[in-house]
Nucleic acid binder design. Structure first.
Lengths: 150, 150
DNA sequence: CTCAAATAGTTTAATATTAAACCATATGGC
DNA sequence: GCCATATGGTTTAATATTAAACTATTTGAG
């Protein structure tokens, strides 16, 4: 659904690129969320578990930064995961402000079971693009993610 | 934040492209949401108003399809907009199931005031990419948005 | 040493987001 | 004409998402 805005060519180009970016991200994520939900995880919960699996235990602040989520949201998502016994929290260092989050054994089991099939689905979602195109997409998106805003 | 998953090269490529896509979409949207919020609109509300401005009145089902949102969510967002007097709803056709949503005069005023500055911000966010690159991004994303899932 | 400023996390309030259940309306095979 | 099925919208329940306010802890200038 491209924009119907009648601005300059440059404006329309930027708007159309932005809209296409959003729609791609939203529709792919939406398609991936269904199977994930049937395994009992929301997209956000999966993101937390995956970060902890691959990057190791970390404080909530770091989690929020890596996942681009607010502090309040991390607290809530980690609350739920903790309730399910998938992660644990503790104030592990000398600085008592920091709460370190790490996977429990149950959490490791769940994410190790879930991740491979999720990865396969992502591969499938990227199939419309050839390898070089996937690379191009990645490079273009990384430049946007850094923050434009002239 | 690329994946630390040790799968095949193809898997890592797909995962990294997907992650970059998500991060770009989320970070740009997040940066745009701030100024929009200060004008009193959420991203979702803006989407509805903009669609109605450029595409004309339409039923909620159509709104949901164009904006990639669920029926329940459209009901809620439109509820709030209606409460603020920015849109109106009526069962306009012979089929009494359909609710047509359209901008009120107040709604037109708001979106006409808000849209140009928002468009400018989007242009700014796309600045890291040259015109041709914006085109490439749009083409790549459109192919993903259609639904892969091999 | 004191205390203003900074920082991590939590709470609060408002809105968003979905799937599923529910209700009203329309459709079309029998 | 009857009724099972389909469809648009609403409601329900659960979770997500944010900014701002709040609490506790840390830092570093004076």
């Amino acid at each position: 659904m491209p924009t119907h805005y009648r601005g300059t060519a440059g404006e329309r180009r930027a708007l159309n690129a932005y809209i296409a970016l959003l729609r791609a991200a939203e529709s792919v994520t939406s398609r991936l969320a269904g199977p994930l939900g049937r395994e009992g995880l929301t997209t956000g919960q999966f993101g937390v578990l995956e970060a902890l699996l691959h990057l190791g235990p970390m404080c909530q602040k770091t989690l929020g930064r890596k996942l681009l989520r607010s502090g309040g949201n991390i607290t809530l998502v980690v609350d739920h995961l903790e309730h399910r016994g998938l992660v644990s929290r503790r104030r592990a260092g000398a600085d008592r402000r920091f709460v370190t989050v790490e996977l429990t054994e149950a959490g490791k089991t769940v994410i190790r079971q879930t991740f491979p099939s999720h990865a396969k689905r992502i591969v499938g979602e990227m199939k419309p693009l050839a390898p070089g195109e996937q690379e191009s997409l990645r490079r273009l998106c990384r430049r946007l993610g850094r923050g434009g805003g002239a």
